[in-house]
Simulated assay, not measured.
Amino acid sequence: MTGRPLGRSLVVLLAVVAAIAIPAIQATQHIGLSAAEFAGQGDQTLRAAGYAFSIWGLIYLGLAAYALYQLTVAPETPILQALAWPSAVAIAGCGAWILASAFNAQWLSVAIIVISAATLIAGLARARAQAPLPAVRDRLLIVWPLSLLAGWLTIASAINILTVLTAQGVIGPDLTWAVLGIAAVLLTGGAVGWRLASPVYLAPIIWGLAAVYVAEQAEKPNAAWLAAGAAVLLAVEALILLRRRSA
């Protein structure tokens, strides 16, 4: 199978261009709130250290490689069929989230990030069901970049929800909600990672939980250690998945 729908390929490319360009334009033109200012309204319940967001450099690089690959040389495999449209939705959602946060549309930001995460995870699950052992090139240039994004969107969804609930005064910035948020990340991330058999999906969640530990160890040491423990458990899961793959 070699032919690919050109329109679909262009939509994916445009989604990636928008996801990369919108944050740059928003930051350089000082449009609305920055992501940090948006989060600062309600990050008293749970937050990640600022360095964690440097992962977007790797995510953008992977998405750019994916966009070019699926437009130019990628064959129309079951992997691409399963992931192209879900990826377009999720990647476009990254740019849309920046705009929602810039204009302080708090509940809209929650809807965007949750829908983006769920759509991409569903696509990855479908791709795995159709082709459990994709070609190396498809794995490297399609599955891995999108798994990395899906993992980050998973932990970011939980933090975004807690941030908005806190900013809206629905919950207070107490330890109970922080613990529930970390537990949700551990259970959801662990279940999805196992279903996808993907250490790559788990990697950004582990990275994010480590950043939660760094950010919260002074003010919420119990939550910080819980985040560290969750990161260790997911790291063990990732190692098990790697061992199973190499067996």
Rank of each mutant, 00 (worst) to 15 (best):
A127L: 05
Y51K: 11
A27K: 13
G123Q: 03
G229F: 01
G32R: 08
L58A: 14
A235V: 05
T2K: 15
R126Q: 11
S101F: 04
S9T: 14
A117T: 05
A184R: 13
L108N: 10
V236E: 02
G193D: 03
V236D: 01
V114I: 05
R47C: 00
L83P: 05
W225Q: 04
L149S: 07
G95E: 04
E216N: 14
L10S: 05
I121Q: 00
A21T: 13
R4N: 09
A158E: 11
T188G: 13
P204K: 11
I91C: 04
Q81H: 10
V232Y: 01
G229N: 01
A238F: 05
L233A: 09
T45R: 02
I182P: 07
A88E: 02
R243P: 07
L124N: 04
T188Q: 03
L241Y: 10
A211Y: 08
Y69H: 12
G208R: 11
R126L: 10
I25C: 01
A19G: 07
G190C: 05
L80A: 06
A39L: 00
D43W: 03
A15Q: 14
W85M: 13
T72S: 09
I91T: 11
G229Q: 03
I240K: 10
G169H: 07
P221E: 03
T188N: 05
I206M: 12
A15W: 06
A247D: 14
A184F: 10
A64M: 10
L196E: 07
A210G: 15
L180P: 15
A184E: 05
G190P: 11
I59H: 00
A211E: 08
W177K: 05
P134D: 08
I25V: 15
L186D: 00
A118W: 01
V214T: 04
S246H: 15
L46D: 01
P86D: 01
N160P: 06
A129H: 02
A74F: 03
I121K: 02
P5N: 08
A156T: 10
P78R: 06
C94D: 10
R8L: 13
A178W: 03
G208W: 02
A19E: 14
P86H: 02
V185F: 02
P75E: 12
P134A: 02
A15S: 15
Q130D: 09
